[in-house]
């Protein structure tokens, strides 16, 4: 033990700025984590894992949007303090629209974000059906799904977003398996 400590001290003395993260491992401690039975927030993955049961369509979404979303996002998603949702100007053009329909690569992310963050005054207040309906309406505003679309877990992940292949991962992400 003594030898080990001396070796460690010697190694640290050789570097001008000690790499502090290495120190943590050397300090003895008692593991104190208690068993976790269930996570309180389920992650929704791009392939749809984690999506709840339920369904909702563009028609119901339009009604909800007028009540809960329009004051910040404008009529038919044309914008306000919450930013516009519907624009489809080319990403390579002079005024690219980084909107949900034009930019986001996965439809499941839209459901996830609406559920956890919208409306900002009351996140997690929308039911699964309401969240599917609003997702359908926002995707419809951008022309990604038709006016009669009804979405559930299965049909939502079947929606192919127009910019699905628009992203170039960094070397750090590629190293961790993202293509």
């Amino acid at each position: 033990m003594c030898m080990r400590r001396l070796a460690l001290a010697g190694a640290l003395a050789l570097t001008t700025v000690a790499y502090a993260a290495d120190l943590g491992r050397e300090l003895p401690h008692t593991p104190l984590g208690k068993p976790l039975t269930a996570a309180n927030v389920p992650t929704i993955w791009p392939d749809g894992r984690g999506l709840p049961a339920g369904q909702g369509g563009v028609v119901a979404g339009e009604r909800l949007y007028a009540e809960r979303c329009q004051s910040c996002h404008g009529e038919r998603g044309t914008g306000g303090s919450g930013g516009h949702l519907a624009g489809r100007s080319a990403l390579a053009g002079p005024n690219p629209d980084r909107t949900v329909a034009n930019y986001w690569p996965y439809a499941a992310t839209v459901f996830d974000y609406i559920r956890r963050a919208m409306p900002p005054a009351a996140p997690w207040s929308l039911t699964a059906d309401e969240t599917y309906a609003l997702t359908a309406y926002v995707l419809h505003l951008g022309g990604v799904v038709p006016a009669d679309a009804v979405l559930d877990a299965r049909s939502l992940v079947a929606v192919r977003m127009p910019n699905r292949d628009g992203f170039v991962p960094s070397s750090e992400a590629r190293e961790a398996g993202v293509r």
Binding site: R98, W104, Y113, F167
Partner: peptide, 11 residues
């Protein structure tokens, strides 16, 4: 085994 592709790493 993959990123969550959340709003803050996509949109």
């Amino acid at each position: 085994s993959e990123p969550a592709m959340s709003r803050f790493e996509t949109g």
